[in-house]
């Protein structure tokens, strides 16, 4: 299978210049996710203001796919609402795991570039690491503020 299917230019671009990288204050929740088969590690913080995702900051140690996915995730969800972020997680998960539906560039932004990853099952975990961490952090942040997720 062609390497271009996997390594879209956009992915390489995000990998080389990740958006929102680095851990920042203030934050409400910090989570650490790992990819146990390959050792990729991600520390991620979220900061909410009301129901807005005010900031997502992260420190990603991993392959191009996982770093680029975290970059795209931060870009897509920052500034939106919590429920939008949760929905984007579900959209990306479905695109990668269920391979259902046409990814919608209006909603998913650069995340559509990851559609080809679904053809490389070993890399799906890499592409989901950042998204899963973000979702986990939001769930914890909501729990903390006493609302239900």
């Amino acid at each position: 299978m062609s390497m271009q299917t996997l390594y879209q230019d956009l992915i390489i671009e995000h990998f080389k210049r990740p958006i929102g990288a680095g851990l920042r204050e203030p934050f409400d929740v910090e989570v650490r996710h790992v990819n146990p088969t390959c050792g990729d590690e991600l520390t991620l913080r979220v900061h909410l203001e009301g129901d807005k995702v005010a900031d997502v900051s992260y420190d990603a140690l991993g392959c191009s796919i996982s770093v680029a996915a975290s970059s795209v995730m931060a870009d897509v969800v920052t500034g939106g609402t919590v429920s939008e972020a949760m929905q984007r997680y579900e959209d990306v998960r479905a695109m990668l795991q269920d391979r259902t539906g046409q990814p919608d560039p209006d909603k998913l932004g650069d995340a559509v570039a990851f559609a080809g990853v679904a053809k490389f099952p070993a890399r799906v975990k890499c592409a989901l690491l950042g998204w899963a961490a973000m979702r986990d952090a939001l769930v914890q942040a909501l729990d903390r503020t006493g609302e239900s997720a």
Binding site: L6, C63, S64, I65, R123
Partner: peptide
């Protein structure tokens, strides 16, 4: 500058 996963992936191709 290249993560081992990416090394293995391109080698696989």
């Amino acid at each position: 500058g290249v993560h081992p996963h990416d090394v293995a992936q391109v080698l696989d191709s």
